[in-house]
Amino acid sequence: MRMRTPVTASVIGLALLASQATASAAGGDPLSDKQWGLDQIHAPEAWAHSTGAGEVIAVVDTGVDLGHPDLSGKLVPGATFTCGGGPAPCGNGDWRGPDGVGQETDGHGTHVAGIAAATTGNGTGIAGVAPDAKVMPIKALEAGSGTFDEIGAGIRYAADRGANVINLSLGAAPGTQVLTLLGQQAGAKEAIAYAREKGVVVVASAGNETSPLCDTPAWEAGALCVGATDANRLHAVYSNLGISPDTKAVSAPGGSSLGDCDADVWSAVPRGTGSPECGMPDYDALAGTSMAAPQVAGVAALLGAQGRDADGIEQSLMETAVTPILGTRGLYDPIYGYGVVDALAAVQQPL
Results as ranks from 00 to 15, higher is better:
residue 61 D to I: 09
residue 61 D to M: 14
residue 61 D to P: 13
residue 61 D to S: 13
residue 62 T to G: 06
residue 62 T to M: 14
residue 62 T to N: 11
residue 64 V to R: 12
residue 66 L to D: 07
residue 68 H to N: 00
residue 69 P to N: 09
residue 69 P to D: 01
residue 70 D to S: 07
residue 70 D to Y: 11
residue 70 D to I: 01
residue 71 L to T: 00
residue 71 L to H: 05
residue 72 S to T: 02
residue 73 G to C: 00
residue 75 L to W: 11
residue 76 V to F: 03
residue 76 V to S: 08
residue 77 P to T: 04
residue 77 P to V: 05
residue 78 G to W: 01
residue 79 A to S: 13
residue 79 A to L: 00
residue 80 T to Q: 12
residue 80 T to E: 02
residue 80 T to M: 02
residue 82 T to L: 05
residue 82 T to H: 00
residue 82 T to I: 10
residue 83 C to M: 00
residue 83 C to D: 02
residue 84 G to P: 00
residue 84 G to Y: 00
residue 85 G to R: 04
residue 85 G to T: 03
residue 85 G to H: 03
residue 86 G to R: 01
residue 87 P to G: 02
residue 87 P to Y: 01
residue 87 P to T: 02
residue 88 A to H: 08
residue 88 A to W: 07
residue 88 A to F: 03
residue 88 A to S: 15
residue 88 A to L: 06
residue 88 A to E: 00
residue 88 A to C: 02
residue 89 P to E: 04
residue 89 P to G: 10
residue 90 C to Y: 07
residue 92 N to L: 02
residue 92 N to C: 00
residue 94 D to Y: 06
residue 95 W to F: 15
residue 95 W to G: 01
residue 96 R to W: 06
residue 97 G to W: 14
residue 97 G to Q: 11
residue 97 G to S: 03
residue 98 P to Y: 13
residue 98 P to L: 12
residue 99 D to Q: 01
residue 100 G to V: 05
residue 101 V to G: 10
residue 102 G to F: 04
residue 103 Q to F: 12
residue 103 Q to G: 04
residue 103 Q to I: 04
residue 104 E to K: 15
residue 105 T to P: 03
residue 105 T to A: 11
residue 105 T to H: 10
residue 106 D to C: 13
residue 107 G to Q: 15
residue 107 G to I: 09
residue 108 H to V: 05
residue 111 H to W: 11
residue 111 H to M: 14
residue 111 H to R: 14
residue 112 V to D: 06
residue 112 V to A: 02
residue 115 I to Y: 09
residue 116 A to Q: 09
residue 117 A to W: 15
residue 119 T to N: 11
residue 119 T to E: 11
residue 120 T to Q: 06
residue 120 T to F: 12
residue 121 G to V: 01
residue 121 G to H: 01
residue 121 G to F: 02
residue 121 G to M: 10
residue 121 G to N: 02
residue 122 N to S: 01
residue 122 N to D: 11
residue 122 N to V: 00
residue 123 G to K: 01
residue 125 G to V: 09
residue 125 G to W: 10
residue 125 G to E: 08
residue 126 I to K: 04
residue 127 A to L: 09
residue 127 A to K: 07
residue 128 G to W: 10
residue 129 V to R: 07
residue 130 A to Q: 12
residue 131 P to L: 09
residue 133 A to C: 08
residue 133 A to Y: 14
residue 134 K to V: 07
residue 134 K to P: 03
residue 134 K to Y: 13
residue 134 K to L: 05
residue 135 V to A: 05
residue 135 V to C: 09
residue 136 M to K: 14
residue 136 M to L: 13
residue 137 P to Y: 13
residue 137 P to E: 13
residue 137 P to M: 05
residue 138 I to L: 12
residue 138 I to H: 07
residue 139 K to R: 15
residue 139 K to C: 01
residue 140 A to T: 05
residue 140 A to C: 03
residue 142 E to L: 05
residue 143 A to Y: 03
residue 143 A to Q: 06
residue 143 A to P: 01
residue 143 A to S: 10
residue 146 G to R: 15
residue 146 G to C: 09
residue 146 G to A: 12
residue 147 T to M: 10
residue 148 F to M: 04
